[in-house]
């Protein structure tokens, strides 16, 4: 009789242990998630920044009208141009650079994705080759009514290399995350330097 009851209690504890462990882990994860997030570092604006695939050095930011490196800007629009020096750190020609720089916070009314232009000959979004440094222009366009700040806040993103991803088992760069932020002074209007 007593032996049967003890057996039952033991069974209950055995079954409950898994649930208890799950609840504990979930609770801990929740508690850690609620902790204040570490601030992403502020990067020095004239330094070379190492992201997963790229070495970048922001050079300057300015407002362009009419035409930015052969890219026509509509009369009621203005273009915010960020010029950077970029080097492909990977072993293969690549153009995975569209989300490398993001306007954060967004200024409103901007184009989703910037146009990325090779300043050397105004080629649109060419692949960059391993180890060859090029000067590129990121161009966002806005309606003229949007007031652009004097100090442009930008987020620099990075990705992580995985030798095999979970879906196909192929190598690649995944999990984009913020590496840090920079502020670029916006030159009012730059005529020089535009070819």
């Amino acid at each position: 009789m007593f032996g049967a009851i003890r057996g039952k209690v033991r069974a209950w504890f055995t079954v409950g242990a898994g649930t208890l462990a799950a609840v504990t882990v979930a609770g801990l994860l929740g508690a850690f998630g609620a902790l204040p997030q570490a601030q992403t570092p502020v990067l020095a604006r004239d330094s070379q920044i190492e992201t997963g695939q790229w070495l970048v050095r922001p050079l300057r930011a300015y407002i362009g009208t009419d035409r930015v490196y052969d890219l026509p800007v509509k009369p009621d629009q203005q273009a915010l141009v960020l010029e950077v020096e970029m080097t492909n750190r990977t072993a293969e020609s690549a153009k995975d650079y569209f989300t490398l720089f993001q306007l954060a916070p967004p200024l409103g009314g901007q184009t989703e994705q910037p146009a990325v232009i090779l300043t050397r000959d105004a080629s649109m979004t060419p692949a960059l080759h391993p180890g060859m440094t090029e000067r590129m222009a990121y161009v966002w366009t806005f309606p003229k009514a949007v007031a652009l700040p004097g100090e442009l806040p930008l987020v620099v993103n990075t990705k992580t290399y995985k030798p095999q991803d979970n879906l196909y088992g192929t190598p690649g760069w995944f999990n984009e995350r913020e590496l840090g932020s920079i502020e670029m002074p916006v030159e009012a209007k730059a005529a020089e330097g535009q070819s």
């Binding site: 293969e92 020609s93 080629s123 692949a127 391993p130």
Partner: peptide, 13 residues
């Protein structure tokens, strides 16, 4: 395909 295995794709310019 470079001597150390770097892969340069044809230019897109």
């Amino acid at each position: 395909l470079g001597p150390t295995g770097l892969r340069f794709h044809q230019t897109e310019r």
